[in-house]
């Protein structure tokens, strides 16, 4: 564990808590892409299957349980509890165009052709594009509530901090995992446009308005 990975995990935790609080407090999931949340639930399910087979640390196990629980809770809040506030007119990204390529790529490029490894690789590829429906929805509605932009900033920062963690681990432990690194870079790059808007607008108290 290193400071970059720890702050990355905490940023990830913060993002999930911000989102849950936003939906619960406002009793509305307006502006939130349910499809991205479904993709995150798939990502955590396929990545954390080893939760029951391998014990890394209490921290690792607790975080996995929290990510799994909170992702399913978020999907439940969006599609069941606050279904009436779900904006399906703007949440129209075809997630099969993200899932299928991730499946194919995981079968072609992986570290080992075993079920657990293929599922882990699939989850890494899927996570790198899982935010696209949400970013697509923000671009369609042309704006995002500031709380949603804080959520996106924390979520985007988490994998960005993981990139620093991978640099650190390569330098200090000469450990690296190209699949995670390449996917993590793609994932972080997808947020760049949003990061620019967030820093130039939201932090100045303006609403996040995308150029129409």
């Amino acid at each position: 564990m290193n400071i970059f990975r720890l702050t990355g995990d905490l940023a990830h935790l913060l993002a999930i808590i911000i989102l849950l609080l936003k939906i619960w407090k406002t009793r509305s999931c307006a502006g939130i892409s349910g499809k991205s949340q479904i993709l995150f639930a798939i990502v955590y399910t396929t990545r954390y299957l080893d939760l029951v087979t391998t014990y890394v640390s209490a921290y690792n196990t607790l975080m996995k349980i929290f990510f799994l629980g909170s992702s399913f809770a978020t999907v439940y809040l969006i599609y069941v509890k606050f279904k009436a506030t779900y904006d399906h007119n703007h949440d129209t990204f075809r997630i099969e165009f993200l899932i299928l390529p991730a499946v194919i790529l995981a079968l072609l490029i992986n570290h080992a052709f075993t079920p657990l490894e293929i599922l882990w690789t699939f989850s890494i590829y899927l996570e790198s594009v899982a935010i696209l429906p949400q970013l697509f929805m923000v671009s369609k509605t042309g704006e995002a509530e500031s709380i949603t932009s804080h959520y996106l900033f924390a979520l985007g920062s988490y994998r960005g901090l993981y990139i620093l963690n991978w640099i650190y681990r390569y330098a200090m432990e000469s450990h690296y995992d190209l699949i995670a690194i390449v996917a993590g870079i793609v994932q972080t790059v997808l947020y760049c446009d949003f990061f620019y808007l967030y820093i130039t607008k939201v932090l100045k108290g303006k609403k996040l308005q995308l150029p129409a």
Partner: peptide, 10 residues
């Protein structure tokens, strides 16, 4: 091989 211990990451 090298990638096994990247499974300690979330």
């Amino acid at each position: 091989d090298v990638d096994l211990d990247s499974k300690d990451e979330l």
